[in-house]
Amino acid sequence: MDLALLGRTLMKLGEASIPTEGIGGHGTSAQSVIIVAADIKAHPGTPVKDVAARTGFPQSKVSACVARLREAGAVETHTDPADRRRTLISPARTASPRVAEVRSADIDGVLTRVLEDPERLDEVKAALRVLAEHLGPSALTRLGD
Score class of each variant (00 low, 15 high):
R84C: 02
L88E: 00
D108S: 10
C65H: 07
M1E: 11
I107Y: 02
T79M: 01
A67W: 04
A74H: 06
R54C: 06
K49R: 12
R70L: 02
A82Q: 13
A105S: 09
L121H: 04
G14R: 05
L6V: 13
D83L: 03
V62H: 03
R85Y: 08
K12L: 09
L115K: 06
D122P: 05
T77W: 03
L140F: 03
L6D: 07
E116K: 13
G25L: 13
D122Q: 05
E101T: 11
P44C: 05
D145S: 11
G56I: 03
H26D: 15
A126R: 09
R93T: 07
L5V: 14
E101M: 07
R85Q: 05
R120G: 00
D106N: 13
I23D: 13
L88A: 10
V51T: 11
T94K: 11
V48W: 01
R70C: 01
D39C: 15
D145I: 07
R98Y: 01
A95T: 07
V114W: 11
I40P: 11
V75G: 04
G73C: 09
A82E: 05
L128V: 12
G109C: 07
V99Y: 09
K49W: 05
P58K: 12
I35E: 12
A139I: 03
L88P: 06
D80E: 10
I107K: 07
A139V: 01
S104R: 07
A95C: 06
V75H: 06
L135R: 03
L128P: 06
S17Y: 13
I18D: 10
L121M: 08
P137F: 02
P19D: 13
G7H: 14
R70Q: 04
G109I: 06
